[in-house]
Design a protein around this nucleic acid. Structure first.
Length: 714
RNA sequence: GCCGGGGUGGUGGAAUGGUAGACACGCAGGUUUCAAAAACCUGUGAGCCUUAAAGCUCAUGAGAGUUCGACUCUCUCCCCCGGCACCA
């Protein structure tokens, strides 16, 4: 319970595994070795309860759900704030490894505690009321209040909770030395070892001899390590040692254990013929003697390796850092601490990919490259933290908890300068098949290969984005995939047709005269679409981004004769993220037709233009500079931009409502839409409007400029 | 139990408080074809009325509220999906 409720404590609960419980049982056993006294019966009950709890797995305990069980120990403790005697219970709803494993029970202000107190007839005190004089009895679940005004709490009575009461009471407890503020992270003990083959071996060595001499990494050579105490990592290890929980009855579990010396890292996963688990409870590596047997880093005698590998959860908790340095084997990820060595080694490398350049050019390039690299290295760190994590909702608890944990550890070690890996988490929807979550065991999975075979990868990819809002997922048994297939087919046909027509130049020009009005229609639609698609992409609204592009294509077909090359290029650029292959092909063909139809090498103009544009938009990546003539990928082009001037309409459609019901609409010159009187005049001329207003008195007119005029009549 | 996301045509889904149903699928009719597939064109929320055109009414899970106007905002309720570690 929260500290502000401390005056409402009527019992304490210990987890069955709590060390005090053992102390209590042995103390009871000592004082009552024989006999059938009440005390010894209690002892028997307590022992029985603890034994049964320990046999249950954590899962079972949780699965048993809301029904709380517990036993009284016969012992009491004193609540320091009011010197009240408080009974101590043992109950398995308290988790030993979380926090202290001991919890105060405040049945007046906690629903679970209330249920427990009711069941075992423990007293219930109201400490949070609706108002400062609310001393009503807490005799039903609904009367339990977790927030409100403190009552029955001595000098704190009358304070609102949670704050300021919580802080005031914390201060009070600290001043009196009753307790200390402490962050309690919601991370349970996390077992990272797995008895499997696939995974990174845990680089630890166990020496029987050293163990028998009670020596381990923490015991030997610590003087030496202390001498190097400037090394902050060893400092950290020393600190962590002090954090290993020591219960009075426990020996250090670490005798005989040593980490593999740094120069022998990494311990690689050995090749084996049979990697399947043996069912022995041990890792498959355990049966590989050449792997297992090694020398003790401490005494040099025979020793064995740890054969468990680490959990994939551990690896997946920092892979996003690794992505930024996949070209490097000497560092795990770009980091503040690694940065110096990164720069040094990179500058000494030479750019060997450039051929056929003059010496000066080459030198220039080299200089440019190393500058770029230097910049690239810096930027790599700047790229972090990740802007947005897109994942399933199921990631939002476990995976992200672990990632955040590791990130905070790296931050504390000074490796990175941020402690939250993903400032923004976006939960995408779940793709449903036949009304339920896909699972291999249910057999209701979508096999992409079948769809790729039938429709192609572009179609499947685009369809997945089109079938519903990204944040909500959708059901896959919809057949509209054929609509996307048709759409891409129509894109292909249109661009191919255009390219072919361009070959017959005369034909391409002949259509020119009647094309002007259609041309402006097209331009308007193109720019409206760019605007919409850009916004939609930013907001991850892929389904409507595609719908807008379908509309654009429909417009293109409508005014087919007036189409220009740039119209098609803009369309392909927008479509490229969805259908990367088909757009790439069509892009190349559009560019190729420039060459063949104009019979010159020029592209130069085209390309240099696109380079300037890139620089203008600032989107060009320095590493792309080389891609002059040999790389025309659409995927290296900048995203299209729209011209706001081209978005403007000459006319607006004004909707006429009468009492909020749509009755008519008419076009109005955009130059006049600001003048309500003109719009009103025009509206009142309309036959339909007259009819509906006939004989009624206009009480009010609401005009939303350029959109709606609403007559309120009596 | 707690947390999160939803509920709109026959279907998937669109709609900064301003013409509900964009864009697709499906279906119906047509063009093309020896025929079919493919492609293309037209229509398509429900109901009423009409020869037709037009028109009217009802519709966004249910019910209230705010507003000139509500799929959208507020409240109450129902249902569906997903997640969950009794975290004190």
């Amino acid at each position: 319970m929260f500290p502000e409720t401390i005056y409402g404590v009527t019992y304490m609960v210990l987890a069955p595994e709590h060390p005090f419980v053992k102390d209590i049982t042995s103390s009871l056993a000592r004082s009552h070795p024989f006999g059938l006294s009440a005390q010894s019966r209690r002892l028997a009950r307590l022992k029985d309860y603890v034994e049964r709890s320990k046999k249950k797995t954590e899962q079972e305990r949780i699965a048993e759900g809301k029904e709380k069980t517990g036993v009284f120990t016969g012992f009491y403790c004193i609540n320091p704030v009011n010197n009240q005697k408080v009974p101590i219970w043992v109950a398995d709803y308290v988790i030993a490894t979380y926090g202290t494993g001991a919890v105060m029970g405040v049945p007046g202000s906690d629903h679970r505690d209330f249920a427990f107190a009711r069941k075992y007839k423990l007293p219930i005190i109201r400490v949070i009321g609706k108002a400062k004089d609310d001393l009503s009895e807490v005799d039903s679940e609904e009367k339990v209040l977790e927030e409100g005004i403190l009552v029955n709490s001595q000098q704190f009575s009358g304070m609102p909770t949670p704050n300021p009461a919580r802080d005031k009471i914390k201060d009070f407890l600290e001043e009196r030395g009753f307790g200390k503020r402490k962050n309690q992270y919601h991370l349970r003990d996390w077992l990272i070892s797995r008895q499997r083959y696939w995974g990174p071996p845990i680089p630890m060595i166990y020496c029987e001899k050293c163990a028998s001499e009670k020596k381990g990494y923490f015991e030997v050579g610590s003087e030496k390590r202390d001498a190097e105490s400037l090394n902050s990592r060893n400092q950290d290890i020393k600190e962590s040692k002090s954090r290993i929980p020591h219960f009075s009855h426990q020996e250090s579990p670490m005798y005989g254990w040593f980490p593999v010396p740094e120069e022998n890292l990494p311990v690689l996963l050995p090749d084996v013929k049979d990697w399947r688990p043996k069912g022995t409870g041990k890792s498959p590596l355990a049966s590989l003697e050449s792997f297992v047997n090694t020398k003790c880093p401490n005494c040099g005698g025979n020793a064995v390796r740890e054969t468990d590998v680490s959990d994939t959860f551990l690896d997946s908790s920092w892979y996003f850092l690794r992505y930024l340095a996949t070209d490097r084997n000497d560092i795990p990820f770009p980091s503040l601490k690694f940065q110096l060595s990164v720069l040094g080694s990179q500058l000494s490398e030479t750019g060997s990919s450039v051929v056929g350049q003059s010496v000066t050019e080459r030198q220039k390039t080299d200089k440019l490259e190393s500058e770029n690299r230097q910049q690239k290295t810096d930027n790599r760190i700047k790229w972090l933290p990740v802007n947005m994590y897109i994942g399933g909702a199921e990631h939002s608890v476990l995976h992200l908890l672990y990632v955040r944990f590791l990130t905070m550890v790296f931050h504390d070690l000074g490796l990175i300068d941020f402690d939250e890996p993903f400032p923004r988490f976006y939960a995408h929807g779940l793709l449903i098949k036949e009304g339920g979550k896909m699972s291999k065991s249910k057999g209701n999975v979508v096999v992409p290969d079948e769809y790729i075979k039938k429709y192609g990868a572009d179609t499947l990819r685009t369809y997945l984005m089109f079938l519903g809002p990204f944040s909500q997922g959708g059901d896959f048994y919809d057949n509209s995939i054929s609509g996307v297939y048709r759409f891409l087919g129509r894109v292909y046909k249109l661009v191919s047709g255009f390219v072919e027509k361009e070959h017959l130049q005369s034909q391409a020009r002949s259509a020119k005269e009647n094309v002007e009005p259609a041309g402006s229609q097209i331009a308007k639609k193109v720019h409206q679409t760019i605007k919409k698609v850009t916004n939609d992409m930013e907001a991850l609204r892929f389904n409507t981004a595609i719908a807008a592009q379908m509309e654009l294509l429909n417009t293109f077909y409508l005014y087919q004769k007036a189409l220009k090359r740039t119209d098609l290029e803009q369309m392909l650029l927008m479509l490229a993220p969805f259908a990367p292959h088909i757009t790439e092909e069509l892009w190349q063909r559009l560019r190729f037709s420039v060459f063949s139809s104009r019979l010159s090498v020029p592209s130069q103009s085209v390309i240099s233009q696109s380079v300037t544009e890139k620089q203008k938009t600032g989107k060009q990546k320095s590493e792309n500079r080389q891609q002059k003539t040999d790389n025309w990928s659409i995927h290296l082009e900048p995203w299209p931009t729209y011209d706001p001037k081209l978005l403007e309409e000459e006319e607006v459609t004004v909707v006429v409502q009468i009492n909020g019901k749509v009755r008519d609409n008419f076009k109005f010159q955009i130059s006049n839409f600001k003048f309500q009187n003109k719009v009103e005049e025009e509206a009142l001329k309309r036959e339909k409007v007259k009819k509906h207003l006939d004989g009624k008195k206009i009480k009010r007119v609401v005009y939303v400029a350029g959109k709606i005029i609403n007559f309120v009549v009596g």
